[in-house]
Design a protein around this nucleic acid. Sequence first.
DNA 1: GTAACTGCAAACGCTTTGCACCAAG
DNA 2: CTTGGTGCAAAGCGTTTGCAGTTAC
Lengths: 143, 143
Amino acid sequence: MPGTDGNWFEILHKSGCRLTAPRRAVVEALVDSLHALTPVDVFDAARKDCPGLGLVSVYRTLEKLEELGLVQRVHLTRGCQGFVRAANGHQHLLICTNCGKAVLFEGDKLEPLFNIVSKNTGFQIDSHWLQVFGLCNACRSDS
Amino acid sequence: MPGTDGNWFEILHKSGCRLTAPRRAVVEALVDSLHALTPVDVFDAARKDCPGLGLVSVYRTLEKLEELGLVQRVHLTRGCQGFVRAANGHQHLLICTNCGKAVLFEGDKLEPLFNIVSKNTGFQIDSHWLQVFGLCNACRSDS
DNA sequence: GTAACTGCAAACGCTTTGCACCAAG
DNA sequence: CTTGGTGCAAAGCGTTTGCAGTTAC
């Protein structure tokens, strides 16, 4: 859903943050991207808008965005340095293992499974976390 | 499933690894544990069996065990430094957010969901990854 | 004017690498 | 004897922190 960046600025503003050029650039980089981005990826992208930007500001803005639930981490086999726009409600991440494209999909259907698991294990289940890996349309055609 | 450590040694041996004291200690620490362990956790536990053990050997053994599919990473919100015994087949991880207890459960039921997602997104789905968080029986009673 | 934000440099912590020695097979 | 494994120390790298100057509001 493009065009939601106005909301992000509004949310940031409402939580007492100032809308500086470096922060704007970082936000734009993440809102515009359909891929999971590492801090350095964000840095590189945002530097085009704001050449003086420092990596530190990227980290600090990412932290704030994660705190506000606007951005979430992507966990890959080799680490969890990726960030994408956060899912709303019961959405989950689908990631292309070739190009890194990230898509959200609905996954409400898990509750029945959790009820069974809860009964069998005695756990009180609070949250879950599903990531699916595969090849996107474009990358399938290439191979 | 306790008592599977014999298999691990056999598998290691068959893939050309030598069964040294440090390696044995690291393997024992992981086989015995029902919790996700960080490299340092493993280090501490394994040092009881093998006092001269170095952290480096823990890293190197973990790498080998992951390579052989005997151990898998646990991804938590703040990082992915945890290791537990790997799941067999279609099992998934259930983790207690209080004590770190890790339990495996069957989760075959996801295929229908993936078929729908695949149809909707054009992705070819290769693998998935489900982790569930909650409180285990013991930790529920405590609170 | 005030408090939040900035970039820089230094500090930090976890992980990896180089190396000489050791031990399993 | 060969080759893989070991511990140590140092290097590496991504992230965090301290700080003085800057800027949104």
